[in-house]
């Protein structure tokens, strides 16, 4: 397994505020990696350092084998960035914009194919101003991938989407991942991380407080389960044994049976709460 992003001891300070305080991170080539964390946890700062937008104070950072603190245009051609808030070029059409950005890259994809991929073929001739919020983010994605990047950063891509638009957007991300593109995603939505990410890291107070697959994060898979049935409930580390006992007791179906492990949200809130 090769490493797309390698970070050791990353630090960044704004005046009195230590935004990032010794952060370690490894993201493998081809995986979808989600970075979770509350506002002000150092999430955006970390990602902007990885994207080459910000200088770091200390630590070791390598993105696709290059230090983003000394980004070259050859490196930028390998990295796609989908920004969180961009309202530019409102009076250009989708096709004009994507075609123009394709010129910046040495091995760009066919602009019309990219537009089709993000599902905007019907809107290719429309001005960006006339698009809905969700369609606009699709243009952002198109601009982020038109250069055929090996690595794509997506910063809170579905904020403000309705549920249907989010599902469609997730399919788009999945199809990118299926092509082997490494994807680094920051998000506030835990269901989004759960649906898309191979691995998740939680940042709080400028450090990684937990890292793992969405299913095992923070000991989620092995945490005690809450078993509820018609006549009672129990917290247990061995829910299967309890269910077996109950099944014998009721001689068949257990009325109102429910077994609940902590949700990703429970684990997440616990993790970031623990750092307060």
């Amino acid at each position: 397994m090769t490493t797309a992003i390698h970070v050791r001891g990353l630090t960044k300070r704004y005046g009195e505020v230590q935004a990032v305080g010794g952060l370690d991170l490894d993201i493998h080539t081809g995986e979808v990696f989600a970075i979770l964390g509350p506002n002000g946890a150092g999430k955006s700062t970390t990602v902007e350092i990885l994207e080459g937008y910000r200088k770091r104070d200390g630590g070791e950072v390598s993105v696709l084998g290059v230090d983003p603190g000394h980004a070259t245009s050859a490196w930028r051609a390998r990295v796609g960035i989908v920004l969180q808030t961009a309202n530019d070029a409102a009076e250009l059409t989708v096709r004009e914009t994507v075609r123009h950005f394709a010129r910046y890259y040495p091995h760009s994809k066919d602009p019309d194919e990219v537009i089709a991929k993000v599902g905007l073929s019907e809107k290719a001739g429309a001005r960006i101003r006339q698009l809905s919020g969700g369609q606009r983010r699709r243009v952002d994605v198109a601009l982020g991938i038109v250069g055929r990047p090996e690595l794509v950063f997506l910063d809170e891509p579905t904020t403000g989407f309705d549920p249907e638009a989010r599902r469609q957007f997730w399919d788009l991300i999945r199809s990118l991942a299926a092509e082997g593109t490494t994807i680094v995603l920051t998000t506030h939505y835990l269901d989004e991380a759960e649906a898309l990410a191979d691995r998740v890291a939680v940042i709080a107070k400028g450090r990684i407080v937990a890292e793992g697959t969405p299913h095992t994060l923070g000991g989620r898979a092995t945490a005690s389960a809450r078993v509820t049935w018609a006549d009672g409930y129990a917290e247990t580390d061995t829910p299967t044994a309890l269910v077996r006992t109950l099944a014998e007791k009721y001689d068949g179906e257990i009325p109102g049976l429910q077994i609940v492990r902590p949700s990703l949200e429970d684990v997440y809130l616990d993790l970031i709460g623990g750092t307060e």
């Binding site: 920004l83 910046y104 890259y105 250069g147």
Partner: peptide, 15 residues
């Protein structure tokens, strides 16, 4: 351009 994200977007490309 600086305010609406044009410059930031361009700075992230090999332009």
């Amino acid at each position: 351009d600086r305010d609406d994200g044009t410059l930031k977007r361009l700075a992230g490309t090999p332009m």
